[in-house]
Amino acid sequence: MTRLSYQYVVLRCVPRPDREEFLNVGVVLYCQSTEFLDVAWRCDRDRLSSFAPSLDVDQVCAALDFVEGVCAGDSRGGTAATKPMGQRFGFLRAPKSTVLQPGPVHGGITAEPARALEHLVERLVG
């Protein structure tokens, strides 16, 4: 069985950065050796609205759709999607002062990056 190293970041919804409170909403996983870059996310509207009643949940979903576009290298990701895969992951893992923020970069080992992504989103997002 081939063991492949990967990196991932958890995407956090941070409605009010000044309070440093967040909910995990997605995971971006990058495996350089297999040229795998993908995101899996869940936008639980009821949970997000309970957490932050004034939050524009549609804005959060739009930001997650943008991340999907960057990962896929398609037009939803704008100019960031035109870059090489490693640069796209670097773009996505860089902190930004928006409602959607990446957590720290973590690493792991897997035989199947897509399965690792499914496992991480189930474990870390719910």
Rank of each mutant, 00 (worst) to 15 (best):
R45A: 15
L11W: 10
V70M: 09
F66G: 07
R3I: 06
G103R: 10
P15L: 10
L124A: 09
G69W: 11
A62W: 01
L11D: 07
R115I: 03
G108Y: 08
A111V: 00
S97D: 15
Q101L: 10
P102E: 09
K96Y: 08
D58R: 07
R93G: 11
Y8N: 06
C71H: 00
V60M: 05
L4W: 04
C61S: 15
L48E: 12
R115W: 02
V39G: 02
E122Q: 14
L29N: 02
R93L: 11
S49Y: 05
R16D: 15
P15C: 10
Q32D: 11
A111K: 08
L23C: 02
G108T: 10
N24M: 09
F89E: 03
V99P: 01
L4S: 01
G78M: 02
D58A: 15
R3S: 06
L100R: 03
R123Y: 06
G77R: 03
A72Y: 11
P102A: 09
R16H: 13
Y6T: 03
L117D: 04
L29H: 00
C13F: 12
D74A: 00
F22K: 05
P15M: 08
F91Q: 13
L100P: 08
L55I: 03
R76F: 05
V57Y: 10
L120T: 03
V9C: 11
V105P: 10
P102Q: 05
V121N: 03
A114D: 08
L64P: 07
R12S: 06
P113Q: 01
A81E: 00
Q87R: 15
V39D: 01
C43Q: 09
V28G: 04
A116W: 07
Q101F: 11
P95G: 11
G108E: 09
G69D: 03
D46M: 13
R16P: 10
Q101R: 15
G108H: 07
Q101P: 12
T110H: 01
A40P: 01
R45S: 13
K96V: 15
P84Q: 03
A52K: 04
F51P: 09
A116D: 04
G108Q: 07
R42I: 14
V39A: 04
V60T: 01
Q32K: 13
Q87G: 06
S49C: 07
E35T: 12
T79M: 06
Y6A: 02
V27S: 02
V121P: 08
M85R: 10
G90F: 05
E20R: 15
V105S: 05
Q7K: 11
D44Y: 04
R19N: 10
E118W: 01
E122L: 15
E112W: 01
D74T: 02
P113Y: 00
P15G: 08
D44K: 12
S75D: 15
F51L: 08
A116E: 09
V70P: 08
R115F: 02
F22W: 14
